[in-house]
Computed example of a mutant assay.
Amino acid sequence: MSSAVCRRVLQTAGSAPAASSGSWSRIVSSCCSRLRAGPRNEARRGMSVSGRGNMNVFNREMKKRQKNWAASLQDGHHYDYLRDEVGCRVADRVYDIARTFPLALDIGGGKSHIAEHLSKEVVERVFLTDVSEKTLMRQSEMPTHRVLADEEFLPFKENTFDLVVSSLSLHWINDLPGALKQIHQVLKPDGVFIGAMVGGETLYELRCSLQLAETEREGGFSPHISPYTAVTDLGNLLGQAGFNMLTVDTDEVQVHYPGIFEVMTDLQGMGESNCAWNRRSLLHRDTILAAAAIYKEMYGNEDGSIPATFEILYMIGWKPHESQAKPAKRGSATVSFGDLSKISQPTNTNKS
């Protein structure tokens, strides 16, 4: 691959009804140079169970190193196109709420991908956290209070924030139910949580191509794409964490690349490489070349590019408060459905 310029096209495809409105399709052109060797993969390990009794799927220390490495790239801003797009959509959902938030918390948003789209008229003060110290060091136009913190262990008191937001960070958390409960705790009553995470069938083209190539060349396949949360599970997780007045919707964003190598390069540049404990540490050259051919054959576009699909799950949940509207008690209705059907029937009138 000799081209120095990589043209990426972001498209919103078949999205479900969302809280925000407007067209979000756009074309993003950026220069991308060849990356140096990425973070050294560790030996393959099996999934373990943490001391708290939760499944330990992801190596959080490796994810920290991956994000630090991505933040140290001189041209790192060229890989922020997806985070900028999703951060803008999360900020748009904040604007849909007709109120001012004195104090907000952005979880896992080191480069201010959400905060840079917010105004002081809507959010007066923002605390921004990230597990990566180098990501937090990146400057942004929006003034924020930056705190080095793991998304799984929020160092804040209960009932502190009026708003909590998060964009493309929660899909790397081992204990998602526990993290949502912590978010619920740090919110003030009648506070709102607005989040976005990668989920569903994200990168199914890359997953399928690697599995088929590995099966053909090596007689079996290993996981190379991390597991993702299904949209059908989000409502239950938010409800179990204590949120009410829930909204869950999904967008499908497709990014078009010249080939599979550009897909994998950009994932590294985003800090989105796989960090699951059971990942395979090495991909053979023959397997990668076979996967590239399968990718283009199965999913390639007429212009020679290939699509990579990202399914973005959006969630909104409120911390309960006595001022919020509540559903009527069961059996409190004063009119039956039978009576309503009689009312709606047209009256026959005969004119002589």
Results as ranks from 00 to 15, higher is better:
Phe101Tyr: 11
Glu201Ser: 14
Gly300His: 06
Tyr79Met: 04
Gly271Tyr: 03
Ser33Met: 15
Asp80Pro: 01
Val126His: 01
Leu105Trp: 02
Met264Lys: 09
Arg93Trp: 01
Tyr81Ala: 07
Lys351Phe: 14
Ser323Leu: 13
Ser323Gln: 15
Glu262Gln: 09
Ala19Ile: 12
Ala4Lys: 08
Glu214Gln: 09
Arg65Lys: 13
Trp277Val: 02
Arg7Gly: 03
Thr215Val: 10
Asn56Ile: 01
Asn278Ala: 10
Pro17Gln: 03
Ser344Phe: 09
Leu163Arg: 05
Ala241Leu: 03
Ala18Tyr: 02
Leu203Gly: 05
Phe156Ile: 00
Ala213Met: 11
Glu116Phe: 06
Ala104Pro: 01
Arg99Ser: 14
Ala292Val: 03
Gly38Ser: 11
Ala91Pro: 04
Arg60His: 11
Val231Asp: 09
Gly259Ala: 12
Asp190Tyr: 11
Leu10Trp: 01
Gly14Asn: 13
Ser29Lys: 08
Gln66Asn: 13
Leu234Gln: 05
Glu141Gln: 10
Leu163Tyr: 08
Glu124Asn: 10
Arg83Trp: 02
Ser2Glu: 10
Pro143Tyr: 09
Arg138Thr: 05
Asp106Pro: 02
Gln324Glu: 07
Leu148Arg: 04
Pro17Leu: 03
Thr135Tyr: 05
Ser50His: 10
Asp92Tyr: 08
Met315Gly: 11
Met298Asp: 10
Asn56Trp: 02
Ala179Asp: 05
Pro17Gly: 00
Thr309Ser: 15
Val231His: 06
Phe156His: 01
Leu180Phe: 12
Ser3Met: 07
Lys63Glu: 10
Arg45Cys: 11
Ser273His: 05
Ile114Arg: 01
Pro223Gly: 05
Asp150Gly: 05
Leu118Arg: 02
Val192Gly: 08
Gly109Leu: 03
Ile183Phe: 05
Arg45Ser: 13
Ile27His: 11
Thr250Lys: 15
Asn54Thr: 15
Ile288Cys: 11
Glu121Leu: 10
Glu124Ser: 14
His284Pro: 11
Ala290Asp: 07
Ala293Asp: 13
Met47Glu: 06
Asn54Val: 15
Leu35Ile: 06
Arg207Trp: 01
Ile194His: 03
Phe261Tyr: 11
Glu116Gln: 14
Asn274Thr: 03
Thr247Trp: 12
Ser3Phe: 06
Arg89Gln: 15
Asp251Asn: 13
Cys208His: 13
Glu61Ile: 14
Leu136Ser: 01
Gly235His: 15
Ala308Pro: 06
Glu133Ile: 03
Ser29Arg: 07
Ile114Lys: 00
Ile288Asn: 03
Ala196Lys: 02
Arg7Gln: 12
Ile97Thr: 11
Tyr204Glu: 04
Gln182Ile: 00
Val90Leu: 07
Asp251Met: 15
Leu136Asp: 02
